[in-house]
Design a protein around this nucleic acid. Sequence first.
DNA 1: GGCCTGCTTCCACTCAGTGGAAGGATTGGC
DNA 2: GCCAATCCTTCCACTGAGTGGAAGCAGGCC
Lengths: 251, 251
Amino acid sequence: MAGGARDDRSVADKLFAIADAFQGGDELTLSEVAARAGLPLSTAHRLLAEWVEWGGLARGDDGRYRVGLKLWRLGVRQPTARRLRAIARPYLEDLLDATREHVHLAVRDGLGAIYLERLSGADAVPVISDVGSRLPLHATGVGLVLLAYSTPDVFDEVLAAGPRKYLPNTLTTEPELRARLAGIRATGLSTSVEALTRGAFSVAAPVRDATGAVVAAVSIIAHVERLAEPQFALGVRMAARGISAALGWRP
Amino acid sequence: MAGGARDDRSVADKLFAIADAFQGGDELTLSEVAARAGLPLSTAHRLLAEWVEWGGLARGDDGRYRVGLKLWRLGVRQPTARRLRAIARPYLEDLLDATREHVHLAVRDGLGAIYLERLSGADAVPVISDVGSRLPLHATGVGLVLLAYSTPDVFDEVLAAGPRKYLPNTLTTEPELRARLAGIRATGLSTSVEALTRGAFSVAAPVRDATGAVVAAVSIIAHVERLAEPQFALGVRMAARGISAALGWRP
DNA sequence: GGCCTGCTTCCACTCAGTGGAAGGATTGGC
DNA sequence: GCCAATCCTTCCACTGAGTGGAAGCAGGCC
């Protein structure tokens, strides 16, 4: 239209698009933020100034922007993350001591698994899961557990979204996913080998709340050479049970 | 003006005022958010819907709003908090083991101390500091340490802001603050008795980065009856030194 | 059933927000 | 040291996004 191509997003959507640019945790220049948010430079500049003035973002001496302490302070007030992390911490530390690999706690958020906690041994296999990251349900151990205990419409949405095959072992078809989820429900445990990370396997188990609903999942991710070691399955199961008990679950 | 009293804040400011309403971590009704943000109901309703659509806030079945996982995920990407917390954790846990009281890590943010971490013993004295909370510099152990090593203009701003005397022992005048800060710089340690919390004393020490700049402070807060016990000062000093060394500081 | 409280939706009104362009600042190469 | 390239800052003519009071709806309580 006259005067230029006017973005039809609301001011709020533009502000949130800017925030989304920082989801990866990077420090970004003005141009990088504008590009990631799909905004003209001057619009990005003005809206970034608003974020900085509030404290949600900070701008360094080098001109680059980063997430500010205000967002950190708000984030730590998130009730689900706060409560689950606090309750789970001792169990996850025990599991770390027992395995010296990666230990995770995750919750479902739509079609993704959000990693609330990751504790890692010094020599753990390199993984892409990180605290705060969001990975697809179908391609992660915790995700498959969360999916196994969610409603059928979530399962349908995962299928409708066209699950991506990251590695040859990534499950993507309805029959193989159904079979796997049924197996998880039968055994209370998920074991995946090289579903998302080469050289790694994972074992995951559900965490229940006082009502018995599955509200999170615990997993370890370890070097695939250690697949036969029995303490992983036992440890994950025990940790998940402990956290569930602490949440009020009574089997 | 015609049509009603129109708020002169920008859309961004109104959105951030809504976010500020959740700083305490509460779950709030629409009316509560509107009141805290100083917004008409219909404006608050619309803008809250934008926050919820993005995922920064969530609305429960009971209609109440809370901080959403999106903000938690962004918050954990905050580089300063993330790095300091990760590096400090083992030292703070050692300090907790040694003292069984409250252990804190805080950074300065303007005229406030932001608590990045708090680990607490089961019988620790009740305190108001909490992870994510922001308390005045002059009235906290960590705050006095952070103030002692900041620039003169910060000190002037604290005085100009009219520091509040929470308890009889809270330092508020320039002479007493100057003397205390000089003592901290001389000894590298801050000891406060009942400055903000009845029945409690605190010991705090500075954390330095590779350049020697003070970037955080560690403290314990304990029952005032234990004031004479020597392990508090030693432990805080050692923990702060350890964290500083891990940050690259070389004395 | 009526009243009270809180929430949702509507819409006439208005100025906040827009983004291209110009100019400034910084950096790197020659 | 100069010039070019790149990025950032600021301006402003233009326009439709955002506003909030009021009416209606929903739920709870007496």
